[in-house]
Computed example of a mutant assay.
Amino acid sequence: MSDERRYFSRIPFAADAHVIAPHGDVYLNCRVIDVSLNGLLIARPDNWSGQLADIFNVDLLLDGAQIVIKMQAEVAHMDTQSIGFHCQLIDLDSITHLKRLVELNLADEGLLHRELSALLDMPDN
């Protein structure tokens, strides 16, 4: 598991996510456990066939799917109960919604700014 995850606060958050593999596997309404500026953790679907380092399109559904945070994410870690995704690519609208979500739930503006700075300073993978 990468050390970079400790730079980002995990926010417990009840939501669903759709996880779509490039080769066609689709996992709908996966239960989100937590989110961060750098990714998310979901409950492992029963029929999961993904592997570490696989890339998926992840849609985080907010407000009854009225807001969708879309990202391309890599499987960073997984166990029998959960799957952790590291965000690889996210559009401006989605990062704006994700930042706002974290901001509303973090309750520490200074910590949010430090995490945003860390995110911007990270080298590309």
Results as ranks from 00 to 15, higher is better:
1 M>Q: 02
1 M>W: 01
3 D>G: 06
3 D>W: 02
4 E>Q: 03
5 R>Y: 01
7 Y>S: 00
7 Y>K: 07
7 Y>N: 05
8 F>D: 00
12 P>A: 09
13 F>T: 05
15 A>E: 06
15 A>Q: 09
17 A>W: 02
17 A>N: 02
18 H>I: 12
18 H>S: 13
19 V>Y: 07
20 I>V: 14
21 A>G: 08
22 P>F: 12
22 P>I: 06
24 G>C: 08
25 D>I: 01
26 V>Q: 15
31 R>Q: 14
39 G>Q: 01
40 L>A: 06
41 L>H: 06
41 L>G: 01
42 I>L: 05
44 R>N: 06
45 P>R: 10
47 N>C: 09
48 W>V: 09
48 W>D: 12
52 L>T: 01
52 L>P: 07
52 L>R: 10
54 D>L: 00
57 N>E: 12
57 N>M: 12
58 V>Q: 01
59 D>Y: 10
59 D>A: 10
59 D>N: 10
60 L>R: 01
63 D>W: 08
63 D>F: 07
64 G>T: 03
64 G>C: 05
65 A>W: 03
67 I>D: 11
68 V>M: 00
70 K>I: 04
70 K>G: 11
70 K>L: 09
72 Q>V: 13
73 A>W: 03
75 V>M: 02
76 A>P: 03
79 D>K: 09
80 T>L: 14
80 T>V: 15
82 S>I: 03
83 I>M: 04
83 I>V: 15
83 I>T: 09
86 H>V: 03
87 C>H: 06
88 Q>M: 11
90 I>Y: 05
92 L>Y: 10
93 D>L: 11
93 D>F: 09
95 I>C: 06
99 K>C: 12
100 R>H: 15
101 L>Q: 01
105 N>D: 02
111 L>H: 05
112 L>M: 05
112 L>F: 05
113 H>N: 13
114 R>I: 04
115 E>F: 04
116 L>S: 03
119 L>T: 04
121 D>H: 11
123 P>R: 12
123 P>G: 02
